[in-house]
Design a protein around this nucleic acid. Structure first.
Length: 416
DNA sequence: TGTCCACTGGAACGTACGGCTT
DNA sequence: AAGCCGTACGTTCCAGTGGACA
């Protein structure tokens, strides 16, 4: 009963608090606004490239690249949405399908999304990739269609699975009867071209559009536009937007990050009943976003990764200045013993360390110690208190973070 | 200068599982 | 039901590596 009263208080406070937002959805990065400042050039360029489909011809394949938060996805969606509207108006048989390759994860799922877009049902799993591709072709050939395929974050898929998907898609028109397909590939990584077969690259890059990062002044314009839509009048102060833009500009001009900062800052201001969003809220928002990211990453780790991280934590606690793979594996094995898990091989643990490095929880560096071999030096790249905080909520891990491994004494002696 | 350490990291392969086709 | 397929997660094997040391 008490909990309900408490919760009711929270809701009451929220309802009675001063409003700062008009429509917070405007600050989400998947929202595509009617106006995209400082991207007029790219919008026109893309528009010119795709326009031929309105007259029933295939448009060129396009390769778009630029860092995260430079407006690539927003511009593509903006232009292709307009194109689809125009096509309906003119009765052109245009279909657009947007797939995020990183989220799709596999060739199979990319093909099945494409099939879904043209109304071909494909089971969620169970078919050979070739079979799904054949069904896609059959689906396209069952009518006359101009199919525009947007493959966002294509670099993620190519690096993980190779370029067969792009190879097949860039050649699909050779076997189609009446329908035609055009590909828009979006990549965050410029170097990604090196992973491509030259034939695929030349076919995909019939046209190229580059999105350079926004500078602080441009970010400020973008933020003001969105702030006016998202917040009530004169809620956001000049200094707050300026700081927000400056912080995001320092991080390669990432508009997505700038919008996140502004949204979280607004939520913080709302919660404390403030009538304005000020610089202090932006600073707090910056800390909050990083904190949440790390907490989320920690909570969702698989059990063995948690034990690896716990081993690094324990080594730090024992004042071992820089842990190496061998030390970590020894402690990890002991922790497995303690928690009744069968330990993975050192090879696998080495891979887990790399994965923890990629998500930013660890920092590892390959070093050679001369005749003492080659290994990785590993340290935590997050606050120890965060690990304690998350692991104490887990019954099994709570015991382990205060555990004193027997092998620790030997490690400390040799390398403390 | 050659040896040797303690790994790294690529590649091939194994196993389990869910789900489709025949 | 059997066979096949993709996916996830793991193991095993092994060539390669950089630099301290004899």
């Amino acid at each position: 009963m008490k909990e309900f009263t408490l919760l009711d208080d929270v809701f009451e406070r929220f309802l009675e608090s001063t409003n700062v937002f008009k429509d917070r959805e405007m600050l989400r990065h998947d929202y595509v606004p009617d106006k995209l400042p400082h991207r007029e050039e790219q919008i026109c360029c893309l528009g010119e490239i795709v326009a031929p489909v309105l007259k029933g011809s295939r448009c060129s394949n396009i390769f778009v690249y630029g860092k995260t938060g430079t407006g690539k996805t927003a511009v593509i969606k903006y232009v292709l949405n307009r194109l689809a509207d125009k096509a309906r108006e003119f009765g052109a048989p245009v279909k657009v399908c947007y797939v995020n390759c990183r989220l799709a994860g596999t060739e199979y799922r990319v093909y099945s999304s494409l099939c879904g877009a043209i109304g071909v049902n494909v089971p969620f799993t169970g078919l050979a990739v070739g079979e799904v591709f054949d069904r896609l072709k059959a689906g396209l050939d069952s009518g006359k269609l101009l199919f525009i395929v947007v493959l966002d974050e294509i670099d993620a898929l190519i690096k993980a699975r190779g370029d067969t998907l792009l190879y097949e898609l860039t050649r699909i028109n050779e076997t189609l009867e009446d329908s035609r397909t055009a590909i828009v590939g979006i990549s965050n990584d410029l170097q990604f071209k090196e992973f491509l077969d030259p034939r695929v690259l030349s076919s995909l890059s019939e046209e190229e559009i580059v999105f350079r990062p926004y500078d602080a002044a441009e970010l400020q314009d973008i933020l003001w536009d969105r702030a006016q839509m998202a917040f009530l009048d004169s809620v956001v102060l000049d200094g707050a937007v300026g700081l927000c833009a400056a912080l995001a500009a320092a991080e390669h001009g990432d508009a997505r990050r700038a919008l996140d900062l502004l949204r979280v800052a607004g939520e913080l201001a709302e919660r404390e009943g403030s009538e304005h969003v000020v610089e202090e809220h932006i600073r707090l928002a910056e800390k909050r976003i990083e904190h949440d990211r790390v907490m989320e990453a920690l909570k969702n780790l698989p059990p063995h990764s948690k034990l690896v991280l716990c081993s690094v934590y324990l080594l730090g606690k024992a004042k071992v200045s820089c842990a190496i793979t061998g030390d970590i594996y020894e402690i990890y094995s002991e922790l497995c013993d303690q928690s009744g898990l069968a330990p993975l091989t050192q090879r696998r643990v080495s891979g887990l360390i790399n994965e923890l490095d990629v998500v930013g929880l660890l920092n590892s560096r390959v070093v050679s110690m001369g005749r003492y071999g080659r290994t990785k030096k590993i340290r935590l790249s997050i606050a120890r208190s965060l690990i304690r905080k998350v692991f104490t909520t887990d019954d099994r891990l709570r015991r382990l973070i205060s555990y004193e491994p027997g092998c620790l004494a030997g490690i400390s002696r040799s390398r403390g």
